[in-house]
Design a protein around this nucleic acid. Structure first.
Length: 169
DNA sequence: CAATAGATCATCT
DNA sequence: GATGATCTATTGC
């Protein structure tokens, strides 16, 4: 939370995430073990997992646990920092800037992230996760996760309290 | 503002 | 062959 994702001229701050607990979590893609799609999550931490959902949107995750342990974090919302015109272009010029990145499918579109970025090391590639240049103080609110059918009572959604770019849910 | 319908396809059974 | 970690447009207050 609060870190910055950079892709080309576009950068944005992470303001909303959800955790998925590998083998213990029925809602996680990795619950049933390794498959062609989820194998990157069984690899080392700090790698991007990008997949297609509902036939038309991409979602961005980062692997978080050591090799062999498939825990990951879904990025649900970002606060645009740089390259905002480019984001507006890719999103089809929405009325409000908050609609650029306030959802997992929207932010990948705004950032230009696709399945081509699946498996990249986000410390050494065209897709980077960095410390922010200016740290801002923030508080984190937790809630249940969104859009899933299992473990719906687990409070594993986290967002920056009061941030305008957090998704509706 | 809230509820609903429809788009659309890679992945897994 | 069914499904899903979503979004948009449209309808009805």
């Amino acid at each position: 939370m609060g870190k910055v994702i950079v892709h080309g001229k576009v950068a944005a701050r992470i303001v909303e995430t959800e955790a998925y607990l590998g083998l213990k979590d029925r809602a996680a893609h990795t619950f049933r073990g390794v498959t062609q799609r989820t194998k990157v999550l069984f690899g080392p931490p700090g790698h991007a997992y990008v997949y297609l959902i509902y036939g038309m949107y991409e979602c961005l995750n980062f692997s978080c646990e050591p090799e062999g342990s498939p825990g990951c974090v879904l990025i649900r919302a970002l606060e645009p920092l740089a390259g905002i015109d480019e984001m507006r272009e890719r999103r089809g010029h929405p009325k409000r800037d908050r609609d650029l990145t306030n959802g997992p499918g929207k932010l990948t579109m705004a950032m230009g992230i696709t399945r081509a970025h699946n498996g990249l090391d986000v410390t050494h590639s065209e897709l980077l996760v960095c410390e922010p240049v200016r740290h801002q103080r923030f508080e984190i609110t937790t809630s249940t996760r969104i859009g899933i059918q299992h473990n719906t009572d687990w409070e594993m959604r986290f967002y920056i309290s009061g941030n305008e770019f957090v998704s509706k849910g």
